[in-house]
């Protein structure tokens, strides 16, 4: 099958000049009718050229300033993301190291943890029977019934948080 023709350019020129089909040289018209390559050109090229003309009538493209601005914003966002990537990686490594160190030290720290737990249990055992007495003393002084054990626990938990906020506000 032939893929090109020596008269291809003549056909293209006639179409581009607007001579095809009515004002075309009869000899070229006969050739186009007989040649598969040129017939395809005569079918396809005017249709695409019309479509191109129609495309120019479509809504205008966005303003260059808008496209530029969006590109700037996006480039800045990407730069920020790229800058944050190493920080996130370092944080992940730090957390991994902390976990590894904790696991590595666990056998050595375990007796101390057990000791601290036993101490806390002893303190609990010592404090619980006396809690009722302390509570009655507070009731006697303030005239209010205060459940002393939950109050003491809540104070111990909240104190560092309140201290943190007090210091950071300063």
């Amino acid at each position: 099958m032939r893929t090109d023709c020596t008269r291809e350019q003549d056909a293209l020129d006639a179409i581009a000049a607007g001579r095809w089909p009515d004002r075309c040289d009869p000899e070229l018209r006969d050739h186009i009718a007989a040649c598969g390559v040129c017939r395809d050109i005569a079918t396809v090229v005017p249709a695409i050229a019309d479509e191109r003309d129609a495309a120019w009538e479509e809504p205008a493209v966005p303003a260059s300033s808008l496209v530029w601005w969006r590109a700037q914003i996006r480039a800045r966002e990407e730069a920020a993301r790229a800058a944050a990537r190493p920080i996130a990686a370092v944080q992940a490594i730090a957390v991994a190291c902390l976990i590894a160190a904790t696991l590595a030290l666990m056998p050595f720290a375990l007796p101390s943890v057990k000791g601290a737990a036993a101490l806390a249990a002893d303190f609990g055992a010592w404090f619980t029977p006396r809690a009722a007495a302390v509570s009655s003393a507070v009731t006697l002084v303030t005239g209010m019934a205060v459940p002393i054990l939950p109050f003491a626990v809540a104070s111990i938990l909240l104190a560092p948080i309140l201290l943190y906020y007090a210091l950071t506000e300063e």
């Binding site: 493209v61 260059s64 480039a75």
Partner: peptide
């Protein structure tokens, strides 16, 4: 942010090419 063209050059290039490119992409 560093882009590979200054704004003035970009605007001129955009004005020359945007309509043709949009027609191409649309079709």
């Amino acid at each position: 942010v560093a882009l590979e063209m200054d704004e003035e050059a970009f605007r001129a290039f955009y004005d020359r090419t945007a309509r043709i490119l949009r027609a191409y992409l649309s079709r």
